[in-house]
């Protein structure tokens, strides 16, 4: 499984990297712009990400903007729905309207910080990634 972790907080991305490295190959990016670039690169190389973990508050582009860009790139490159990346939004912003907004933009799941390891793994199982 190929995973992209987009997270500007050092501790949070190290945690996700350590946790998810057990299940696949993780790429790390530290801001929204890098996330978009990494995703574009994956399309060019035809090595699509199975899972994208997007923090909402990030420099340069926020998680919602990245999510929108990802879905747009998939559409323009004729990526089949079954090959599209599963996107999990992650944020310390614990407000319902933000959660619903991201679902509307096309994310598969939302996880609130502080993350619970068990729950997060269950979430990946539910998304049929592991």
């Amino acid at each position: 499984m190929r995973i992209l972790i987009a997270e500007d907080d050092y501790a949070s991305r190290q945690f996700l990297f350590k946790l998810l490295s057990q299940y696949g190959d993780c790429d790390i990016v530290v801001d929204g712009m890098e996330a978009v670039e990494a995703f574009m690169m994956s399309i060019r190389k035809k090595q699509l990400y199975d899972l994208v973990c997007l923090d909402i508050m990030m420099p340069k582009a926020d998680g919602k903007q990245v999510l929108k860009a990802i879905r747009e790139m998939e559409k323009q490159n004729d990526i089949l729905p079954q090959d599209a990346s599963k996107v999990v939004m992650i944020s310390a912003l614990n407000e319902t309207d933000i959660v619903f907004e991201t679902f509307d933009t096309g994310s598969e799941a939302y996880a609130a910080k502080p993350l619970n390891t068990e729950k997060f793994i269950k979430l990946l199982e539910k998304l049929e990634l592991i």
Binding site: Y10, A11, F15, L19, A92, N94, K113, P114, N116, T117
Partner: peptide, 17 residues
């Protein structure tokens, strides 16, 4: 809330790992 949750994420997650 955001500023508290962010370091807590590191503490809880990393200790769990």
């Amino acid at each position: 809330s955001h500023e508290i949750r962010t370091p807590l994420n590191g503490i809880i997650g990393m200790s769990d790992l």
